Simulated assay, not measured.
Amino acid sequence: MIGYHFKTQHSVRIAQLTDCHLLAAPEGMYQGVQPYHTLAAVLEAIKHSKLDALILTGDLTQDHSVASYQHYLALLAEFSLPVFWLPGNHDDSQLMSTLFQQAPFRPEKQLFAAGWQLLLLDSTGPTPAGYFPTTRLQSLQHQLQSDLRPCWLFAHHHPAPIGSSIDRHGWQDAEPFWQLLHQHTQVQGIAHGHCHHAYHRQLQGKNVVGCPATSVQFQQTGVWQTLAVGPQWCEWTFTDQGNFSVDFKRIMP
């Protein structure tokens, strides 16, 4: 796998955006908001931040349309920093690969930043739930065995239940994945989208971070409900001292 190497520096700052759910029409509605405009507001807010990259962690589209992905090309045209991506259950991976071939988009899924290895995982499968079959496990194992620097993983699906209605579409058969993580102490944690909910907790000795959505958030209840409380995202900092931090950001409605 070809990796992307950030320039040598003491720290790297990355914005994680997820679950944007864009539609072909910019004025289209998703759960009571216009997702094109909520994403545009986030991009405007971070445009002048001293960021080194963006990571988009899936469900970039709601209607799977070419036009919805083309909005990203237009919205990010002014950004000079690299934009990395991985698919969610609403996405079309082949379409993304075809359309996201021009700057600032980058194809790499293995990033090297300030002494860290950041791995972008594909957790999608034939249903809305998360899947990580043997072939993906073997690839991840090879990457972790070949590089022992501190590591964070990024995926779309949450790797363990969070007590929400979204759990029925969570990561299926996650135990082999967790067994692999236990074998590699350099893995500090996994960040994901899918839940439309901001949280940071410890699970089985690893950090798990849920990145909130740029569109709407999900109520943490057994019955699916949404909250339009302003677009949200995460900002990460990784340092060459082996430290990391994550900040949850929000634009008030």
Rank of each mutant, 00 (worst) to 15 (best):
H200C: 13
R201L: 15
R201K: 14
R201S: 15
R201P: 08
Q202C: 09
Q202H: 12
L203P: 02
L203M: 09
Q204I: 01
Q204G: 03
Q204S: 11
Q204F: 08
Q204D: 12
G205F: 00
G205N: 08
G205Y: 02
K206P: 03
N207C: 07
N207W: 12
N207R: 11
V208F: 02
V208G: 00
V209I: 15
V209N: 00
G210V: 04
G210P: 07
G210A: 09
C211G: 08
C211V: 13
C211I: 10
P212L: 05
P212D: 08
P212C: 07
P212W: 06
P212K: 05
A213S: 15
A213L: 03
A213E: 00
T214D: 03
T214C: 07
T214R: 01
T214L: 05
S215I: 05
S215H: 04
V216P: 04
Q217A: 04
Q217T: 07
Q217F: 04
Q217I: 07
F218K: 01
F218C: 06
Q219S: 12
Q219K: 12
Q219A: 13
Q220R: 15
Q220E: 12
Q220P: 10
Q220F: 07
T221Y: 00
T221G: 09
T221R: 10
G222I: 05
G222E: 12
V223A: 10
V223T: 14
V223S: 13
V223Q: 14
W224D: 01
W224Y: 14
Q225D: 11
Q225K: 11
Q225E: 14
Q225H: 14
Q225I: 02
Q225F: 03
Q225P: 06
T226H: 13
T226S: 11
T226E: 05
L227N: 10
L227I: 14
A228E: 06
A228F: 00
V229K: 10
V229A: 11
V229L: 12
V229N: 13
V229E: 15
V229T: 12
G230V: 07
G230H: 06
G230F: 05
G230L: 08
P231I: 01
P231Q: 06
P231A: 05
Q232H: 08
Q232M: 12
Q232W: 03
W233G: 00
W233P: 03
W233Y: 06
W233L: 00
C234Q: 12
C234A: 13
C234F: 00
C234D: 10
C234G: 03
E235W: 01
E235L: 02
E235Y: 02
E235A: 03
E235C: 10
E235V: 13
W236E: 04
T237Q: 15
T237F: 02
T237N: 11
F238H: 04
F238W: 08
T239H: 07
T239N: 10
T239K: 06
D240T: 07
D240Q: 12
D240G: 09
D240I: 09
D240A: 12
Q241R: 13
Q241K: 14
Q241P: 04
Q241D: 14
Q241Y: 11
G242I: 10
G242M: 10
G242Y: 06
G242L: 09
G242Q: 09
G242W: 06
G242A: 10
G242S: 09
F244M: 08
F244C: 11
F244L: 08
S245V: 04
S245A: 15
S245M: 09
V246G: 04
D247G: 04
D247N: 13
F248M: 09
F248S: 02
K249Q: 15
